[in-house]
Design a protein around this nucleic acid. Structure first.
Lengths: 224, 224, 224, 224
DNA sequence: CATGAATGAGAATTCATTCAT
DNA sequence: TATGAATGAATTCTCATTCAT
């Protein structure tokens, strides 16, 4: 076997595997675990059922692999969040509020994407059957988002812009002020996602409320 | 047929109907819609399958009826919430914070009950298949909770204890400050409900954060 | 429900159950466990597959039930054997030999019936998968046959017609002298069962060999 | 292509063929014909399924080849048996009994090996599907054992140590006195093979019973 | 030639729903 | 009216065998 052969073989197999994963992801997110049959997956992936079973032990294994993969990709949300904070610290309270407003808004957009919502629904639906997957998701997605926020808040606290005993709690307050109203609603009413204006409003209110609670009273050292 | 006969017959039928509803509720909440078979329901209700089908057109109808019934009973949560506010207004800011702490704590307890969480999971899981049910639930449960809070906040605002442009938004902030951290976690990690201490802590932090944002600066109107 | 109703219902159900058991017995004995499908069983019993599954948890349960039932009926062989010994003791050595010849012959016939051989094959085939069934069969069939023989030999020994230290061993020797040659052959060559003459010959040889070993030298007390 | 190449090719092919045969033997003996899949065989032999099909027409052909091969190797049992008789004749009745005891014991050991028992079970299980294989096995294994014994008995008879009209019948009596009790039990109770003491006891009893029946009354020519 | 993919069927089991009694 | 049986399809998974590369 030459390298080319190996590459070709691997490529072929890996390609099929990808097609299966992609098809299954689509279907699981749309119809849930029990609402998706292996036949449908094979058909959508344009492979035979046996190819599916040769690559994945059984439906559960396929489900697990997909949830783990997609959960991993949820880092995207966390990365977006981290990026939104920017690299520099805000210099004044006013700047900080605007910064937080942006962060809230960006975070909200990330979280209201249809895929992210579907994944959330899927994992919540199966949380009792697959507690390990649910835990993993929880730790990778919502919890890590709060970690990132807490980390940034620490820097603001060090700069005297924010005052908080418990940074993780403050971070959670910020996260849920920003997300919870819209996210909760979106879980139940998938077809009524809030529009841009509403998102702006929610993000602004979250930033304002957060700073009212945790903003330093003597903001940036006294405006002359 | 005498009235007695009719009554007996009705009674018996109604009794079976109740048994079916009760069995189906248990099973749907535990195993989901697709995870529950009509056979299981009939068996747990100790009736024949035909009896089930005589009372309910099909599985979907049974599911709907149950979700609507249980959703209706979720008023309980709203009632608990309303009761927690009490009938009198708080006289001072301090009293108000304690009052809100209590409310947050009671609300949290109500919402973290296993049944309530299971119902939430069930409805979220089926939100795309049964958007009307999800809407109804959303309007009956989370939304009405916020209504109740908003209503109370209005009275506080009138008394000068709270300042808010948008009372519903303020109410939502309070609700999600109080619930979201724990509720979100509980949806994903059913086996790790927060203990009493943690609940106290979350409730206190919610009350504090809310008042920092929406509490009147001149607390109780300034008693001259 | 009246008794008649119950009876009718039971009768109907029991009838179907019997049909299933009968069909499955036929097929399992003919084609083995893996060689028989639930579809075939349902078809041969003229019932729906669901009726089969309602009566028997799964294929294994059905298999077990059948093997146990048929094993129980194998008592027939033991009963035949016991009857062949007759109620009276033989008075002389000559009579005893004739008696044993008859017993051997009858036993051989019982054991060479097609059903008995098929059952033996079936249980041997599954002995590693179902050790409990194999044990039960072994104890009910071959072992009990030897018990019966040992019991009769004890009476002969008490009458001085037979001399043996170890009656069970002597019984086993008799049993296998009588059966083993033909039984072994029949297990492998189902289509070449020995004819009556051959059976006579084997039975006679078994009786003769047994008495040569275990017959009392001073037979019936000395004919003057 | 040089001869070396051809040799190498043949060697490689033959090697794979052997690997397949070996894997299939293991699996067929362990799990039976229907309990073994071509996939498993290919996997255990570390070859592709196509290679299996290139070497053997289909599953049945592979099964046949294996059973025939293993049946051929069962000669081992016959060889062991023949060797146990030794090259010299026994001189006295006492020596003969000891000799037969040894033979019986060795034969028993040979026949109670797990592989031999598994093969027996396998062939019995498939005797109706593959009557030709069963016949071949029967003729190669149990029947040839009896042939060997009959042959030796003839020499003993010529030496006046043994008296028998029908040497094959006498040989069968010896064989089944020696084997049948333990072999039968072992077929049904694979996990309860008799220990050495029990084997000794059975072998001794077989030798004794055989000589009581077929031993010459005037043993070795009368010791004056 | 040999690897992975494909085929096409079949088996066990389950389900929602409907008859028949 | 209620029970057990029946229906007919679907679902998960496996298998023996054959292409295509």
């Amino acid at each position: 076997m030459t390298k080319a052969d190996e590459g070709a073989a691997t490529g072929r197999t890996a390609q099929k595997r990808q097609a299966i994963l992609s098809a299954a992801t689509t279907l699981f997110l749309r119809n849930g675990l029990r609402g998706t049959s292996m036949d449908e997956i094979a058909a959508l992936a344009s492979v035979s059922k046996q190819t599916v079973y040769k690559q994945f032990t059984d439906k559960e294994a396929l489900f697990r692999e997909i949830v783990e993969e997609v959960t991993g990709n949820s880092d995207a949300v966390v990365d977006i969040l981290a990026a939104a904070f920017g690299d520099t610290l805000a210099a004044t309270s006013d700047e900080l509020e605007e910064r937080l407003r942006t962060v809230a808004r960006v975070y909200l957009d990330a979280v209201l994407r249809a895929q992210v919502l579907s994944l959330r629904r899927l994992i919540i639906a199966e949380a009792e059957q697959f507690p390990d997957l649910a835990r993993r998701y929880y730790e990778q997605a919502p919890a890590r988002g709060i970690d990132v926020i807490a980390d940034r808040l620490r820097r603001y606290a060090e700069a005297g812009l924010v005052v908080a005993d418990d940074l993780r709690l403050a971070a959670a307050h910020f996260a849920y002020l920003a997300l919870a109203i819209a996210q909760d609603r979106a879980l139940f009413l998938p077809s009524e996602l809030p529009g841009p204006g509403e998102r702006d409003r929610l993000a602004a209110a979250a930033a304002r409320a957060f700073l009212a609670t945790y903003g330093s009273t003597e903001p940036d050292g006294g405006k002359p």
